[in-house]
Amino acid sequence: MTARMLRLFPGQPEEVAVAGAYLSHRLHELGSEASPFVYASFVSSLDGRIALRDPATGESRLPAGLVSDTDFRLFLELQAQADCLITHGGYLRDLAAGRLDDVLQVGMQKAANGLARWRADNGLPPQPVVVVASASLEFPMPDSLARHGQRVFIATGAAAPPERVAHWRAAGYEVLIAGAGQSVEGAALLRELDMRGLRSLYLLAGPRMLDTMLRDGRLSRLYLTTAHRLLGGESFHSMLAGSELGKAGRLRLGALHYDSGTLDGTGQFFAHFEPWAHGPEL
C-alpha cells in the first residue's frame, strides 16, 4: 500500500501520497540568474532539538525517534531537485568517522526509488554539484564524490588558513573565497555559485549556514519536520545559535502535512515556510 499523509494547509484537509509530494514543488525550476533558489531542511523535536551533544567529547548525534521513513523519503525528494548540495567540513569529518551516512548522491538508497530517473527526465545531471563550506578547511574528502563524478567546490572566507587553501588547490579543487572573515557568508557564496550557473541550492550545512542565509536575505524556503516528542537534555543543537535575527527571521507557512503513523504512532508534522519580507511589523 502506498504511504499516505494528510495535507492540512492550504485548502481543505486531504489525503495525499508521500511519494512525489515534494517533487511536485519543482524547486529546480524556481531559481534564475537573478535569484538562485536556496532551500534548507531540518528535523526537530517539539522542544527544538535537532541533535544532542556529548558534553565530554563534544560529538553530536541525531537522536533516535526523530527521523521516519516518511521524513527520509521527503528529504531524498528535496535532494533530487538540487543543482548543488551545500555541506560543511563537520559533516565530512562525521562521515569519515562512521557517525553519519553518506547522503551526497541521488538514487543510492532503497527509499530513493525512481529519483535518479526523475532527475534524468527533468534535465538534471545524474548527480548534483557539492560545495563544502569550511572555516578551518580541516576535513577529509570522501571517495564517493570522485567515484560518482561529482564536481566539488570548497568555500571559505578570506581569512582562512592560507596553507589549507593552498593544500586544497594543489589537490585540484577550486576554492571559493566567500566571506571577508574566516567563515562563509551567504550572499558572497551565492554570488560565486551563481557565476557557475547553479540555480537550485540545497543547504545541508547546519545552523551556521542557515543563519547567514537568513541574515543576508538569501533563503528562499525552509522545510521543517517536527517529531511529536520532547527530548530534553542539557547539551544540544537547535536550528540557530547566533544573535537575534529580528526581521530576517520572519517566515510565512506555505504548507503543512501530518502523518499520524510515523514514530510508533506519535506522528510528525511536515511544513515548509518562506521568508515574509513584506509582512506587517510585529
Rank of each mutant, 00 (worst) to 15 (best):
A82Y: 00
A82N: 10
A82F: 00
A82I: 00
D83H: 15
C84S: 14
C84P: 03
L85K: 10
I86H: 07
T87A: 14
T87M: 08
H88A: 15
H88S: 15
H88V: 08
H88K: 13
H88M: 15
G89C: 07
G89E: 13
G89R: 10
G90D: 14
Y91R: 15
Y91T: 15
Y91E: 05
Y91F: 15
Y91P: 04
L92H: 05
L92I: 01
D94C: 07
A96D: 13
A96T: 07
G98N: 10
G98E: 14
R99C: 04
L100P: 01
L100K: 14
D102R: 03
D102Q: 09
D102L: 06
D102S: 12
V103F: 04
V103H: 06
L104I: 09
L104P: 11
Q105S: 12
Q105R: 10
Q105K: 01
Q105W: 00
Q105H: 12
V106N: 04
G107A: 02
G107Q: 11
M108A: 08
Q109G: 02
Q109W: 02
Q109R: 14
K110V: 08
K110L: 12
K110H: 09
A111D: 08
A111H: 04
A112H: 05
N113G: 05
G114L: 02
G114A: 06
G114E: 06
G114S: 03
G114C: 06
L115I: 00
L115K: 02
A116I: 00
R117A: 12
R117H: 04
R117Y: 00
R117V: 00
W118V: 04
W118A: 08
W118C: 08
W118R: 03
W118D: 05
R119F: 02
R119K: 10
A120Y: 01
A120L: 12
A120C: 02
D121R: 10
D121N: 04
N122E: 12
N122A: 03
N122V: 01
N122Y: 01
G123I: 06
G123H: 01
L124W: 04
L124I: 05
P125K: 08
P126H: 02
P126F: 01
